[in-house]
């Protein structure tokens, strides 16, 4: 459904994303993981049209969308959420979601009805009339998902929707994400909460300092020495291995 070919994004002398080729298969939940500053959000922003790539291409549903504007990409059926949530603070939760719904339903009644249904789907049904600025962190994260989902996407890009949530709140949002996938929406997500990545994703890519260093099932990638070293520092993989073998003997 989504393929990037040799995607590169530079900021001055810093190469935030270097030659990244990833793909998200239809119906899958694909995860993008990596330490802080690895370039995950930059890769997202480049895919969704917020940044122009310096090299490479983005193909979505068989169509080259490199360099398109975010709103055009949204019209084609790909939508992103923001890691730092961006609620329309003075609007009600329902009106927030309706902005997304209007992308598919030009008439007000239809948009509001669709928005209310999406609100209930993500568990905001009881807070539709609340002003968005008054939501809790967990509520804002859900609102971020709801607004994006209301645009009826084929591909949903979720940028750390679990960051800052308590374990209970994470347990609540995981089934919501599965539920979205089960309605036929393909999902590409960035996540730091490894426990959630292991449970949610079918495939995972690991990004470090702008490079892709591993890909496979989540169970595979967490065993890769390069991944362990990216998270824990050079030499960590061998130390972990010797530690494990010493314990085994």
């Amino acid at each position: 459904m989504l393929t990037t070919q040799g995607l590169t994004k530079r900021f001055g002398g810093l190469v935030a994303v270097r030659d990244a080729s990833i793909s998200a298969n239809a119906g899958d939940i694909t995860a993008l993981i990596g330490p802080n500053g690895a370039g995950k959000t930059t890769l997202f922003a480049t895919v969704a049209g917020f940044l122009k790539p310096d090299a490479g291409s983005v193909t979505f549903g068989g169509r080259d969308i490199t360099g398109m504007k975010p709103h055009q990409i949204c019209d084609l059926g790909m939508v992103r959420t923001f890691q730092i949530v961006k609620p329309f603070g003075k609007l009600s939760v329902l009106d927030n979601i309706a902005v997304g719904a209007y992308a598919r339903f030009p008439r007000r009644q239809d948009a509001l009805a669709h928005a209310a249904a999406i609100g209930r789907q993500v568990g905001l049904g009881g807070q539709l009339e609340k002003i968005a600025a008054g939501l809790t962190v967990a509520g804002r994260k859900r609102l971020e998902v709801a607004r994006a989902l209301a645009t009826s996407p084929r591909l949903l890009l979720l940028d750390e929707v679990m960051a800052g949530l308590t374990p209970t709140e994470i347990d609540e949002i995981v089934p919501i994400i599965f539920g979205i996938r089960d309605t036929g929406v393909t999902i590409l997500l960035i996540e730091h909460v490894m426990q959630a990545v292991m449970r949610l994703s079918d495939r995972a890519y690991v990004l470090n300092e702008g490079h892709l260093i591993a890909e496979g099932t989540p169970q595979e990638v967490v065993r890769e020495p390069a991944v362990i070293e990216a998270y824990l520092g050079p030499g960590a993989a061998t130390r972990a291995q010797s530690f494990a073998s010493r314990n085994a003997s």
């Binding site: 969704a48 917020f50 504007k69 975010p70 709103h71 949204c74 019209d75 939508v79 992103r80 959420t81 923001f82 961006k86 609620p87 329309f88 603070g89 003075k90 609007l91 009106d95 309706a98 902005v99 997304g100 209007y102 992308a103 030009p106 008439r107 007000r108 948009a111 607004r147 994006a148 209301a150 645009t151």
Partner: peptide, 26 residues
């Protein structure tokens, strides 16, 4: 105010980036 136009105006007023992500041609 009671139309898509007003909703999109309000979205631009509150956060342009989020508006464009949701399909609004800012």
């Amino acid at each position: 105010q009671n139309s898509r136009l007003g909703a999109r105006f309000a979205a631009i007023r509150e956060d342009e980036e989020a508006a464009s992500a949701l399909g609004v041609d800012v």
